[in-house]
């Protein structure tokens, strides 16, 4: 086996630049909720929503800058699977909370 550089153009993901941008954004998105929570800067519901949004944003950042979701050959079965998977994850979590909300004791 020899080396295969730039195979088909879809394997050499990203550049140093994209990794650095992703890293910096991730750090920022970690620090913001941390500061918000440590100093109790918002009232509770708003705080929960804000930090969850930050987490989701960071997920998106990592998807694009680290996992290179935009690259890869078409059709992008991996992206389709991921989206469907996230729908199911949401269903599991939201559904459990909803169903069990009435069953606490």
């Amino acid at each position: 086996m020899t080396q295969h550089q730039n195979h088909g153009g879809h394997q050499d993901h990203g550049s140093l630049k994209s990794y650095v941008i992703g890293f910096v954004l991730s750090i920022v998105l970690t620090i913001i909720p941390l500061v918000l929570v440590m100093n109790q800067m918002l009232e509770k519901t708003a705080l929960v929503i804000t930090i969850l949004v930050m987490a989701i944003l960071q997920f998106v950042v990592q998807l694009f800058f680290f996992m290179h979701i935009r690259e890869g050959e078409k059709p992008r079965y991996n992206v389709q699977t991921l989206i469907l998977g996230l729908v199911i994850v949401f269903t599991i979590i939201a559904g459990s909370i909803w169903i069990m909300m009435f069953n606490k004791y």
Binding site: G85, I93, S96, I97
Partner: peptide, 20 residues
């Protein structure tokens, strides 16, 4: 990739349990 998505479900179930 698909395996990683199944792992998402796995963690999703644990998160659901934690949330409850």
């Amino acid at each position: 990739w698909i395996f990683v998505v199944t792992d998402c479900i796995l963690f999703g179930t644990l998160f659901a349990t934690y949330a409850v």
